[in-house]
Design a protein around this nucleic acid. Structure first.
Length: 214
DNA sequence: CTCCAGGGGGCCA
DNA sequence: TGGCCCCATGGA
């Protein structure tokens, strides 16, 4: 079995050509993306949508209104997406932080010389969620080494990526990637994962089966 | 019925 | 550091 050797950017182009734009992270505001990023932790997106609908009804995703909610009200709103004790506290922590920073996303992104580290100090924000926020809220072109990315890259490279940090150190986007492409890439990888990288799915029948990363 | 999804934190060796 | 366990709901 001979494999076609491709660069990271060529991989992106192949996936985009095959699957098209994924419209990843549907949201009308940065605040909604942040809420979604927390609520989706180890949770099906469908359940997240239920919580977002309920939250929107009582807060319109307004930062001050969200911070005004009692813990019980917040928990009640986000219950459908599970882990509500952890997630309600994470929402509180992140929105407190936002309010302190005047909720100017562009300003935060420019002023903090190590925003990733700063995000990781927030309780409830781990490596993956921090990178999701960098990519979709703070407009930084980063690669997200989530489980689907690790499964895919373990198949199309000679490395075996066991955890987030291991892959995050090894893989970074080249500067050919625009912000929009970086955002699209993550969506493509996860949609590909849902179709071809589950236990019952068959990667060998996918359009990436004969691809290897250079 | 079981399984697990667009993770994170605490604990322990 | 690395492995293990817990957190919780709802759809398949």
């Amino acid at each position: 079995m001979t494999h076609k050797k491709v660069t990271l950017y060529e991989l992106y182009q192949i996936m985009f050509q095959e699957m098209g734009p994924q419209g990843w992270w549907p949201a009308d505001s940065k605040e909604e993306i942040i809420l979604g990023a927390i609520l989706v932790q180890n949770t099906n997106w469908g359940n997240v949508e239920k919580s977002l609908t309920r939250l929107k009804k009582i807060t319109q995703f307004n930062v001050e209104k969200i911070l005004t909610l009692t813990p019980e009200e917040l928990i009640e709103a986000i219950k459908p997406s599970g882990f509500y004790k952890n997630k309600s506290q994470a929402i509180k922590v992140v929105f407190d932080w936002l309010q302190k920073r005047y909720v100017d996303f562009e300003k935060i992104s420019q002023e903090s010389n190590n925003l990733r580290k700063e995000l990781l100090t927030l309780h409830g924000i781990g490596e993956e969620t921090a990178d999701v926020l960098l990519l979709y809220v703070f407009d930084q072109s980063v690669f997200i080494s989530d489980s689907y990315a690790r499964r895919l890259f373990s198949k199309i490279s000679n490395n075996e990526f066991k955890n987030y940090q291991e892959m995050n150190r090894a893989v970074q986007l080249t500067n050919e990637f625009s912000l929009e492409e970086a955002q699209e890439f993550h969506g493509l990888i996860d949609e590909f994962g849902k179709q071809y990288l589950k236990e019952t799915a068959n990667f060998e029948k996918s359009f990436l089966a004969n691809i290897k990363l250079i």
